[in-house]
């Protein structure tokens, strides 16, 4: 028995520090919100539930089925987790899964874990839950159909986000990586959609109470619909732009100073990569880098602390 890595997990070395840090900041903020929400709204029963559900997602990712030409489909689970556990709990569960995959199996790096959590845990949950939530009161058939579309789209969102991060880090050229990522994951997403729908319909048949009114699944507010739709629209709009007309996006990124930052070494949070009073010496560059890193660290720690306070 071996552990097979999945294609969306970015290893260390492929994203630069700026992109990794930005992803970490977004991830830490969203997880912080999830932590405070789950502490507030969910009962004490949720702790073992989320823990064992995390093990479930991990184990369910090992259920594969042969598709065509020697490839096999399997589950990523972000959309499924968010639909059955509610969005915040789903995000925490996916975060734990990705953290263990990175820490224990080196499937996905540590410095880039923020990006991996964002791509596979947060975006997938937002789309999966948001779209599903919009048809919560409709018939089971509608719910399953929308869940399938949401599952497929969630994988595409993860793939697109990965491609964009690789490009912004100067690791890949935009058009190639977008086309490659999206076309591979358009197929993987079909597997994701099929398994998600089949698993949900199994639950609808055997334990409809787990997905009905009053269940954790129904706890997400209507704001999630907006979040799901916005992320979905971004995927739908950015995908063709990045794969067919990359010049536009490249220009935006250059204007924002991103491409420069991506291509050169990544300590450019401070303008001109040096501290003015030290002049253009290596020492100045290193100090500038260190200060940049400290600022990022400070933000991360401060966010963590403030959330920690809420939780204890």
């Amino acid at each position: 028995m071996h552990y097979a890595p999945a294609p969306l997990h970015i290893p260390d070395g492929f994203l630069n520090v700026t992109v990794s840090a930005i992803c970490w900041v977004i991830t830490v903020i969203v997880i912080g919100m999830a932590v405070s929400r789950t502490n507030k709204s969910l009962g004490e029963k949720q702790v073992p539930l989320m823990g064992i559900m995390a093990a479930f997602i991990f184990a369910a990712q090992m259920i594969n089925f042969p598709v065509a030409g020697g490839t096999s489909g399997h589950l990523l689970g972000g959309a499924l987790a968010a639909i059955v556990l509610g969005p915040w709990a789903g995000m925490l569960v996916m975060t734990a899964v990705i953290a263990v995959q990175g820490l224990l199996f080196q499937d996905g790096g540590l410095l880039v874990m923020g990006a991996n959590i964002l791509n596979m845990g947060l975006l997938t949950a937002a789309i999966g839950y948001g779209l599903y939530r919009s048809v919560m009161n409709k018939s089971t058939g509608t719910k399953l159909a929308v869940a399938g579309v949401a599952a497929w789209l969630s994988v595409m969102a993860g793939a697109l986000a990965t491609a964009l991060q690789l490009w912004l880090s100067g690791t890949s050229s935009l058009q190639t990586v977008t086309i490659a990522m999206l076309s591979v994951h358009a197929l993987i997403g079909i597997g994701e959609a099929l398994i998600t729908v089949a698993a949900l319909s199994f639950i609808f048949r055997t334990r409809p109470d787990l997905l009905g009114e009053g269940s954790v699944s129904a706890e997400g507010g209507r704001g999630w619909i907006a979040a799901g739709v916005v992320v979905s629209l971004l995927v739908v709009l950015l995908s063709p732009l990045a794969s067919a007309n990359p010049d536009g996006l490249e220009r935006v990124a250059t204007d924002l100073g991103f491409i420069e930052a991506g291509q050169a070494a990544p300590y450019e949070i401070i303008p001109n990569y040096t501290l003015p009073f030290l002049g253009e010496t290596p020492l100045s560059t290193i100090l500038a880098g260190a200060i940049g890193a400290l600022i990022v660290l400070g933000i991360v720690v401060a966010t963590g602390r403030s959330l920690q306070k809420k939780t204890s």
Partner: peptide
């Protein structure tokens, strides 16, 4: 069909975990 079997297994596993 194979995906359906896999999905049933995932559903089964979900219930047992729950």
């Amino acid at each position: 069909w194979r995906a359906r079997v896999a999905g049933n297994m995932a559903g089964q596993l979900f219930l047992r975990s729950y």
